[in-house]
Design a protein around this nucleic acid. Structure first.
Lengths: 261, 261
DNA sequence: CGAGTAATTGAGAGCGCTCAAACACGGTGG
DNA sequence: CCACCGTGTTTGAGCGCTCTCAATTACTCG
């Protein structure tokens, strides 16, 4: 498989220097220039020359591997380079509850920043490469990188808004609207990194979609088939074609402006 | 009314100096020492003597007044000194969707930090005093106050966790569990600032509770009466007595440890 | 090829929403 | 002081969406 090969290849020469040049292009892979942390990896003199290469590419994570587990001591925030992750906690009755999916160029682990432990687990949905930001260390040093700090603030703030968006979805929208919003959101995230926005492979299972959207698996499945009957999408397994983006956006209740709130 | 008098009183002498001594005690009022921003208002020499009195107490807001409106340019984060606020956005069909209630010692406006506008509106539910942190200015200056930054990070991170908690609630819990969780959460927040935890006045209407919890007003009302029949609470209007905190916590699914995720 | 997991489809039931009406409360004006 | 209105709250009846349970089919991987 494409991902596997590249991952192995990268792992064999995963020096920090490797990170200063663009990653290879492939589905679900972004360039370092697009990375929200580029300023910290790529040569940067913004911070009065104090900026060093802080962010290190970590080893590849295999499907099903944990980046960290709920309750682990907080140490790093991760930026996804390629692949996909989910973050999830365990509810009272022990079943997992997915709090987010993370695609390339997005940050994982921010919610652990304020406390000493990760409040959720993070697990690779497929072969995944991440960059590691040793935030714990940074926080303890008096050295304060303004650009990093501001960037992290932005990311947390964005995550806050996304979360509120999700609360809107969970409290007011029915199953059709939730799935539509989910697909449109994914589409927008792919588009934002110049990947095909109307044709992609879902990195997660129907079960995980349901857990994320607060729906039963069966409901997710039913909505998918209904959307196909309505010619809104074509899907085969995890492959999804969005046939009618406008109608789907309308159905989602978000009239194309991405994030309303 | 108690609040009104005090508020007027304070507005007449609302100098920055006023903030360096404890606020008057009253229901729903906290001391400045308890405030999460005390380090910035009260004399502090942690930041190499650079810390100045940055946070200013603003004029009192009357019930129904806006601190800021959705779409306003982002400028400040607010710390609630007394009273209560709600933050809310407008959904597609125009109805308001409440994203949070904010009691004394809590911060409001963090979600606007990363972007240039406030993504939600903030409105006073009763006579409310807040302190104003001109974060926009701070962010533009090279001056970086480590303690402030870290504190804000903590707050945002905490808000992220709370949001995930809410998502759990919205996606998995039924009406009884939601209301129980809501009451227990409020109770804990009152307790954390040494106010009576099992007897308090709800600053929000049933309608607002419903909007916050993703329930219809009628359902909220029904659950309240059911809880009274079960002798879990006693309530008259907005006054609430929690008669069986343990049972209520169990019903909420949070077995007393506050925030599970 | 076979076992285990994931996905799909069907039937039935329950929870919460919607609609509707009655009631309580607070403020206003006569 | 009371009538009045608006808003907020409570209670009831019925329906619809989604969950649950169950069975079948389709993948994935050893």
């Amino acid at each position: 498989m494409d991902h596997d090969e590249q991952a192995v290849q990268l792992s064999q020469k995963s020096s920090a220097r490797e990170h200063t040049k663009p990653c290879q292009t492939s589905p679900h892979r972004t360039h370092c220039q697009d990375c929200s942390l580029a300023a910290l990896c790529l040569p940067s003199f913004d911070d009065n020359g104090t900026a060093t290469k802080i962010v290190k590419r970590s080893r590849p994570f295999k499907r099903g591997e944990y980046l960290y587990r709920q309750g682990d001591e907080f140490s790093c925030v991760f930026a996804v380079c390629s692949g996909a992750l989910k973050t999830f906690g365990l509810s009272d009755n022990g079943e997992e509850l997915i709090t987010g999916f993370h695609l390339p160029s997005e940050l994982v682990g921010l919610s652990g920043m304020g406390c000493n432990i990760y409040p959720v687990s993070a697990l690779a949905l497929e072969e995944t490469l991440v960059c590691r930001i040793p935030l714990k260390q940074l926080d303890e040093q008096p050295l304060q990188l303004p650009h990093l700090r501001r960037r992290l603030m932005r990311c947390m703030s964005r995550e806050l808004r996304d979360n509120q968006q999700m609360r809107l979805l969970l409290s007011k929208k029915n199953a059709d609207e939730r799935i539509a919003a989910f697909l449109i959101d994914l589409s927008a995230r792919f588009r934002s990194r110049d990947l095909p926005a109307n044709q992609f492979r879902l990195p997660m299972s129907r079960n995980e979609i349901g857990s994320y959207l607060g729906l039963a698996v069966e409901t997710v499945s039913r909505v998918f088939t209904r959307f196909q009957q309505m010619r809104l999408i074509a899907s085969e397994g995890k492959e999804v074609h969005i046939l009618a983006p406008l109608e789907l956006s309308t159905l989602a209740g978000w009239h194309l402006e991405g994030s309303p709130i």
